[in-house]
Design a protein around this nucleic acid. Structure first.
Lengths: 315, 315
DNA sequence: GATAACAGTGCACAATAGGTGCATGATTGA
DNA sequence: TCAATCATGCACCTATTGTGCACTGTTATC
């Protein structure tokens, strides 16, 4: 795998390790074997004459020096990205490989169209789309496997909003709609408020999942405590539950209802208009790249079109 | 040759090429064969998807993009150097290899003592000294063959004083002394002025050489036009000429007279006290490194001792 | 204008850096 | 105590990368 980055692969490996914490996970992310990662890190220490790692239980851990180096290298990587982007623009050059990453609905609704659009505007570009959850997207960005990620803005243990390694752009606030069985009394309505559904049995994701906190936030915003009846992992499952009359649920507008039987989607009105914020993330420095800029434009255009589409247009 | 730099070798090659202008010279400087350099540059272009070089006559030349990339990479390299230096300090680590470069007298009078001092204070450090003229020293710095260079501050075609790639520290102003035959009427004097020697036949380096401009500058400062009788390339030759009674000459204090027969060294007094400025140069960013700092200290100490030594102490 | 010198590149071949897979050792939790 | 989890060392292998030489195109010299 040829590296188009000018920063030594071993340093990149160290940076990925800093995110992953274990040699094994680092290897998996970079597409190496654990021994290769181990050897790379050992070699890096030898070459730099620094001790970067120490044994820690059955694993290894960064030393203070190692952490220092990783943190300092953020600026280095950003500098390179920015230089490459500027050189691209200055020379009117074409990028050859472009990696995109995003979580399920984003991949389907935003990245797939983007890839298609880029294929027509830049036939020479080799676009690769990887479906991955937000956390992994950041890992993939650091590992240089992808160049642009579409994620749900949400704090998680491995990610903070103002991480200097990434630059982020808001694409859209994806509103949450309500899905209810088509034989529900409110099914003929155009819109509904959360208060009106306060006593319904709700279907949501498992507590602790990424979207669960979004779910609870939506209700606390309007001062309602929903009764959680069922849990589902995928939207399809949740839709099926609703279709079976087990309860009602929240579905992001981006998630398509497709030809789901017995389920209708209603927009939420009232003070609490829950939404999930969807942002694009790139490595710091690369945002000025023309390819990134074009991609962000296409994504935002697509996002706008989705937001302004009529509720029935579910495809 | 393991690279302790985290910047891709191919980019370093491009940077060296930018200084050398030809593939062959680049290869020589980096210790590669021309084909290897050619292949590296081709590969770099492929990987980055940029055209960096164009044919130019029987050689190749950087494109605008290439120049842009090289210039931009200066900051990148400096950033890395600075990061490495900081990590070294933070982790109290020992550097393993340390390359020194300098022109003849500097190598003998300053670098050799420095290397000796470092060998005792840091036994693990592998010190390498390369004698090279100032121009080549800068090439060697860029090529990462050396880490510190001692040069005579003087404009030349490939070097400008405020090159962002280098950081420079004045070590000493090496005064030029006069050397005259010991049977010369003025030989018993302690000091002399240039005016007193205005009518003597002078021995200097060939016109166009690095030191010739220094020579003429010394005389124009006091409004005297010397009569140049002979030309020599090495100090030893010049001293022999003076010893043979062919004329008088200027000799930097750093250059030792050793056991030269029939020659005495006199200090110059009066308004025109010619000197050559000797500076240490390092890659930008690395100046904060403890090793560099220690070395600069030793060099300056040594320089001070040379300046304050009595004139007779010539060894 | 012929010819020699020079600069860069392509190709066959060789060296070696670097990756894989497995076995091993060390540590933690059940 | 045993199984699970991690890192690492080793033997082996791959493929990246460098070398040497031949070849082409360009410039300078006579």
């Amino acid at each position: 795998m040829h590296n188009r980055c000018m920063i030594d692969q071993r340093l990149t490996t160290l940076r990925v390790f800093a995110r992953c914490g274990t040699v094994g996970a680092t290897a998996e992310l970079l597409g190496y074997s654990p021994s290769a990662v181990s050897a790379q890190l050992r070699e890096l220490q030898r070459v730099l004459g620094m001790q970067l790692l120490t044994k820690d239980g059955r694993g290894v851990r960064l030393t203070a020096t190692g952490r220092f180096l990783v943190e300092g290298s953020d600026a280095l990587v950003a500098e390179w990205e920015s230089l490459r982007a500027a050189a691209m623009e200055a020379g009117d050059q074409v990028q050859s490989r472009f990696g995109l990453g995003g979580f399920s609905t984003a991949a389907a609704q935003l990245l797939a169209p983007l890839a298609a659009a880029l294929r027509s505007t830049r036939p020479l570009l080799e676009v690769q789309v990887l479906e991955a959850d937000p956390d992994r997207c950041f890992d993939l960005l650091v590992a240089e496997r992808i160049d642009l990620a579409v994620i749900v803005a949400m704090q998680s243990h491995t990610y903070v909003e103002d991480d200097p390694r990434f630059e982020q752009t808001v694409l859209l606030d994806d509103p949450l709609d309500v899905i209810i069985p088509s034989d529900h009394p409110l099914a003929s309505r155009e819109t509904v408020t959360l208060e009106e559904l306060a006593s319904e049995p709700w279907i949501t994701e498992a507590a602790g999942s990424t979207y669960h906190s979004l779910f609870t936030a939506a209700f606390t915003a309007v001062g309602v405590t929903p009764r959680i009846a069922h849990e589902a992992v995928e939207w399809e499952t949740q839709i099926a539950f609703v279709g079976a009359g087990l309860g009602v649920g929240l579905l992001p507008r981006l998630a398509p209802l497709r030809s789901a039987e017995n389920v209708v989607r209603l927009r939420i009105t009232g003070q609490g208009k829950p939404a999930r914020r969807i942002v694009a993330a790139v490595r710091s420095g690369s945002i000025a790249s023309p390819l990134i800029q074009e991609s962000l434009g296409i994504l935002q255009d697509r996002a706008h079109r989705i937001l302004t589409a009529r509720p029935e247009d579910d495809h």
